[in-house]
């Protein structure tokens, strides 16, 4: 069990090098799991996309899987642009 922050009740967040707020970027729920993966979406064209292109999203493993799966299985079909075209980079953080 991680140590808990007395004020917020959330576990202390591990600090990822060079990033100020290493909280998981998943926005369908509050996630306090530690981030291990990154996704950077391409900027532009896709106005329907909620994520701002060009910014790095840091994600815990569970939500990294869900983000890629949603892109491939839901978003791609609706937007028509192939999923891979949306991503400037993706993968584990330590690479």
């Amino acid at each position: 069990m991680k140590s808990m922050d007395v004020q917020t009740g959330f576990p202390d967040l591990e600090i990822v090098e060079g990033v100020e707020n290493p909280r998981c970027s998943w926005n369908e729920s509050v996630c306090t799991a530690s981030v291990e993966y990154r996704i950077r979406r391409r900027a532009g064209e896709d106005t329907a996309e909620s994520a701002v292109g060009g910014e790095v999203e840091l994600l815990c493993p569970r939500h990294y899987v869900l983000s890629l799966a949603r892109l491939l299985e839901v978003h791609e079909a609706e937007c028509g642009t192939p999923a891979a075209e949306h991503l400037a980079e993706y993968g584990p953080l330590n690479q």
Binding site: V65, A77, T81, A83, A84, L87, G91
Partner: peptide
């Protein structure tokens, strides 16, 4: 993760091989 990465890469190859970029409707 492995499966999703494979799917992304596979599509990327197909795309590079025979598709001009541009929006399409489903």
């Amino acid at each position: 993760v492995r499966e999703l990465h494979e799917r992304l890469e596979r599509r990327h190859e197909t795309l590079a091989a025979d598709l001009p970029a541009g929006p399409r409707v489903e």
